[in-house]
Design a protein around this nucleic acid. Structure first.
Length: 262
DNA sequence: ATGGTTGATAGTCAA
């Protein structure tokens, strides 16, 4: 059995219902994980997605901020959520497919502007959230699992447009990269995107603030697909749909895909 | 060092 999973920070699922439908129609992943839905679960436009064959959804939401949803053509079982760092935010939800694979959908805190927890509480919360992930994966090591989402960190030098210029910019500071690495190592997670595309610049996010995001191309790879080591070798075909960043009224993130043959 | 844009929501806060 082969299935394709995609992850996309949609930055309001209600405002961009049409873009989600376009992705489901044109790319037709079996499973689509969304972040920043910015919607209570009961206000997600589920009927439109159902009409396209996505009859299953597992989601967590809150008014105005955060929110994660897993849309699927394949049956899903809700297997819960975690609230690392006790933020009370809808930033994680997990679902199990009938083939036994568990999908974790994460929206890691962005962390504010200043990379110093002494003066920026949000940066501390981001580090604490990642420490919570690390401890959880260490205590219950993932198997038959896929982790996707907006992790709000670009770990590698070739995951950003300028390593040197971003070293003090939240999303690429050494302390964040180290903390993300600790969470990844604790779960023995394999970075599927980089397993498939080991070399070269790779971005999934471009700021709204650039005059011409495409020409400037000052991107970062904030969105990730990881797999537990027992299924990582089944992954292939990773890609980032950069074109979606140029759709009308776009999200500032592009969807990331991977296919698993299991 | 600052500004630049977008979204939810109704004056800012978050990204």
């Amino acid at each position: 059995m082969s299935f394709t999973i995609a992850t996309w920070n949609i930055n309001s699922v209600r405002l961009r219902e049409g873009l989600v439908c376009r992705l489901l129609t044109e790319e037709a992943p079996d499973v689509l994980c969304l972040q920043e839905c910015k919607s209570p679960v009961d206000k997600i436009p589920l009927e439109a997605f159902k009409a396209l064959g996505y009859g299953f959804m597992v989601a967590r939401g809150q008014k105005g901020y955060n929110g994660v949803a897993i849309l699927s053509k394949l049956p899903l079982e809700d297997v819960g959520d975690m609230d690392f760092a006790d933020l009370g935010h809808a930033r994680h939800v997990a679902a199990r497919l009938e083939n036994g694979v568990t999908v974790h959908n994460f929206y890691v805190p962005a962390g504010g502007d200043v990379s110093d927890r002494a003066v920026n509480e949000k940066f501390g919360q981001k580090l604490d959230y990642l420490a919570g992930m690390r401890d959880w994966f260490r205590d219950s090591r993932p198997e038959q699992a896929i982790l996707v989402g907006d992790l709000n960190i670009a770990p590698r030098e070739d995951d950003v447009w300028s390593h040197k210029q971003l070293l003090k910019i939240v999303s690429h500071t050494p302390v964040e990269v180290e903390q993300l690495g600790a969470a990844q190592e604790a779960g023995r997670w394999i970075d599927v995107t980089r397993q498939d595309i080991p070399e070269g610049l790779l971005y999934s996010w471009w700021s709204y603030r650039a005059k011409d995001w495409d020409a400037a191309d000052k991107g970062r790879r904030l969105d990730h697909v990881w797999a537990s080591p027992d299924i990582a070798n089944a992954a292939h075909g990773s890609r980032i749909l950069r074109a979606a960043r140029g759709w009308e009224k776009p999200s500032d993130h592009a969807p990331v895909f991977a296919t698993f043959d299991l």
